[in-house]
Design a protein around this nucleic acid. Structure first.
Lengths: 333, 333
DNA sequence: TTGAAAGCGCTACCAA
DNA sequence: TTGGTAGCGCTTTCAA
C-alpha cells in the first residue's frame, strides 16, 4: 500500500506539499505540483479517507435506519436519500432493524462509533428508548415516521389529514354515500389518527352518515387480504372502501377478486401511499401519492444543511401529496 | 468529546489499560476493570471507530453498488446483504449508480478510499472499464450480474438455462404448442442467451415447432406494456407467452387486459424472476422464482469468508431456483 | 511556496 | 497485570 509518505519521498518533497496538491488547499508551484501528480499516477497512490477523517473530524457518513428495505416505498426513500446525499459527497451507511427496538439501539450506537455525521430514521413508530438515545447522541437527525411523540424532533411529513380529506371528498363526489374506512392498526398512531380525522371531516362536511371505520390487524398485504376475505364472506353494502394504505387496499382488492366481487363494478376501492405497485395492479389503484423519493431527498438535503451549519433549516417539513385518480373507483352518480 | 485519554486520566490508569478493557484483549485485574468501566459509564465515553480503523487497518465496511434500488428484487438482495453482513459485524455502504458507468467508477474509487474491505456489484452488465478497475483495486469482490464477461471474477448466479428449460417445459406440458418467447434486449447478454437456449432446448426436446422469439426494447414494466399493446393491436395466435422477466410479463399482461384480452383464458403468460409484485397482480403470475434475499445473503457470506481469509471459498456459486405455479397459465389440453 | 512537526484517537508492542 | 510509547496516514499550524 502506497502512502503519502512514499509519494513525498519519490517526488522529493515533503508530505505537506503532497497533501496540498491532493486537496488543492494551498498554492503549490507548477513544477512541484506536476512532479507530485506524476508520482501519484505512477504509484497509483490513493488517499486514505480513514486517516483523513481522523484528523479532519469529518466522516461524510450519514446513517440510515429503516425497518424493512423490501417495502417499495422505503426503498424509494432510501434511493432519494442516497442519490441526493452523493450530490453533496455524503455516503449512506444502511441499517435495517426489522421493527426491532434492540436492533435500532444497536445501530444507533454503531453509527455513533463510526462517527456518522447525521441520522435518518425511517420507521413506523419508535420507543421512547430510541427517542432518548437519539437525543443523547446529539447528532443532526431527521425522522420519517408515523408517530411523532416528541415535538423537539425534526421530521419530514405529509399532511395526511388533508390528504385523506381530499381523497374521501373525491370518493363522495363520485356519488358514494355508504363508505367503509379501513384503518391499519388498533394501536393508534398520530398519523393514523390524522387520517381518520380527515376522513371524518370529509364525511361530516358532506353530510354522509352511513359510514363505518373498521380495523385490520396489521398494515401489510397479507393482513389486507385476510380482511378482504372476511369482508367477502360476511357480505357488505358499502359502495366504496377507503384504505389507510395501498398494501391493505390491494390486499382487499385481491381478496374481493378471488371471491368473485368486482372492483370497481361492485365496489370502489381507494388507497393511500402511491406505492409502486399501485399502478401495476388491475384495476389500477386510485390513491394518494406521497412523494417518497422526494421525502428522502428533502430529508437528507435538510440534514446536510444542518450538518454544514447553515442557518435557515426548518424543523418540520411538510411535503405536498397528490391525488392519483385511476380505475379502482367508479362514478355511481 | 471524551476520548480514551480522558478515561485513562479519570480512572488513574494508562490508555493501554483502558484499551484492554474496551476490547477485552488482555487480562485486566477485576478492580481496575471495574474502575475503568465506571468512568466510561460516567463520562459516556464511546470509542471512535475511525481511529481504531486507522491502526487496525480494518474498516468492517462492505461497499454495495447497485443500479437502481427501486427495483424490488434489488432491494430484496440488498436486504439480504445488509442483514447477513450485520451478523458478522460488517456494515454496508450503499451506492446507486443508475446504470451509469461513470458513477460506478466514481463509487469504486470512493469505496476504495473509504477502505471498504469488500465489494458487491449488483447490476445488469458492466463495461470493461469497470471490470478492469475492480481488478486493479484488488479487493474481494462478488458480482451478481446478467453478463459475465470475465471468468476470473467471482459471482453468484442462477442456472438460468435450466430454469428457463423447466419453465418452458411446464408450459408445454400444459398443452401449449404455439409459444412466444419475449426476450428483453437486442444486445444479448450471456444470461439472456442462456435463457433463450433453455427455451429452445425445451421446445426442441418436445418437438414443438411453432414458436417465435421476439425482442422488447428494454427490460422494464413500461417497455413490456408497450410491447403488449403492439401485440394486442396486430393480433396473434400464440397460446402462451414466455417472458424473460416478470416486469415484462406484467407489462404485457396489463396491456392485454387493457385491450380486452384475457389472461389466462385467451392466452397464458409466464414470467421469470419471482419479483414481489408477481404474487400481487391478478391473475397471479406463474414464474421462476430466484431467491433474491438468499442471493444477497450468500454473496456477502462468501465475501466475508474471503475477507477473513478462509480457505474453502467457492468462486462461482449457483443457487437453486423454484418454479412458482400460479394463475396466469391455463391447461389447454 | 515549502518543510518540520504536532497530533487526531486508538492499538499493540516491549519492558517492567 | 500494567504503563510507556511508537505509529497508523493524514491535515494543519508555524516558521522559514
Amino acid at each position: 500500500m502506497v502512502t503519502i509518505k512514499d509519494v513525498a519521498r519519490l517526488a522529493g518533497v515533503s508530505i505537506s506539499t503532497v497533501s496540498r496538491v491532493i486537496n488543492d488547499s494551498k498554492p503549490v508551484s507548477k513544477e512541484v505540483r506536476e512532479k507530485v501528480l506524476e508520482v501519484i499516477k505512477e504509484t497509483g497512490y490513493r488517499p486514505n479517507d480513514v486517516a483523513r477523517s481522523l484528523v479532519t473530524r469529518r466522516s461524510y457518513l450519514i446513517g440510515v435506519i429503516v425497518n424493512d428495505l423490501s417495502s417499495s416505498y422505503v426503498a424509494e426513500m432510501v434511493k432519494g436519500v442516497e442519490e441526493v446525499g452523493k450530490m453533496y459527497n455524503f455516503d449512506i451507511l444502511l441499517c435495517s432493524s426489522y421493527y426491532d427496538t434492540e436492533a435500532q439501539l444497536k445501530y444507533l450506537r454503531l453509527l455513533d462509533r463510526k462517527q456518522a455525521e447525521g441520522l435518518i430514521m425511517i420507521g413506523y413508530k419508535y420507543d421512547k428508548e430510541i427517542i432518548d438515545k437519539v437525543k443523547e447522541l446529539n447528532k443532526p437527525t431527521i425522522f420519517f415516521t408515523r408517530d411523532l411523540i416528541d415535538d423537539s424532533l425534526k421530521y419530514v411529513k405529509i399532511d395526511s389529514k388533508s390528504a385523506m380529506y381530499e381523497m374521501t371528498n373525491y370518493v363522495i363526489k363520485n356519488g358514494h354515500k355508504n363508505i367503509l374506512y379501513v384503518s391499519d392498526y388498533d394501536e393508534k398512531s398520530t398519523y393514523e389518527a390524522e387520517k381518520i380525522q380527515g376522513f371524518k371531516d370529509a364525511v361530516g362536511d358532506n353530510n354522509i352518515d352511513i359510514y363505518e371505520i373498521l380495523e385490520v390487524q396489521g398494515r401489510k398485504y397479507r393482513e389486507g387480504y385476510k380482511f378482504g376475505e372476511k369482508l367477502s364472506n360476511k357480505g357488505f353494502d358499502y359502495t366504496a372502501i377507503v384504505c389507510t394504505n395501498d398494501e391493505i387496499a390491494y390486499g382487499i382488492m385481491n381478496a374481493l377478486f378471488d371471491n368473485g366481487i368486482k372492483v370497481p363494478e361492485d365496489v370502489s376501492v381507494v388507497g393511500y401511499g402511491g406505492y409502486k405497485e399501485s399502478k401495476i395492479i388491475r384495476p389500477s389503484l386510485t390513491t394518494v401519492s406521497e412523494p417518497y423519493y422526494d421525502i428522502g431527498a428533502v430529508a437528507i438535503r435538510n440534514l446536510i444543511k444542518e450538518i454544514e451549519g447553515e442557518e435557515e433549516v426548518e424543523n418540520k417539513i411538510d411535503l405536498p401529496f397528490t391525488l392519483t385518480k385511476r380505475d379502482s373507483i367508479r362514478n355511481i352518480k
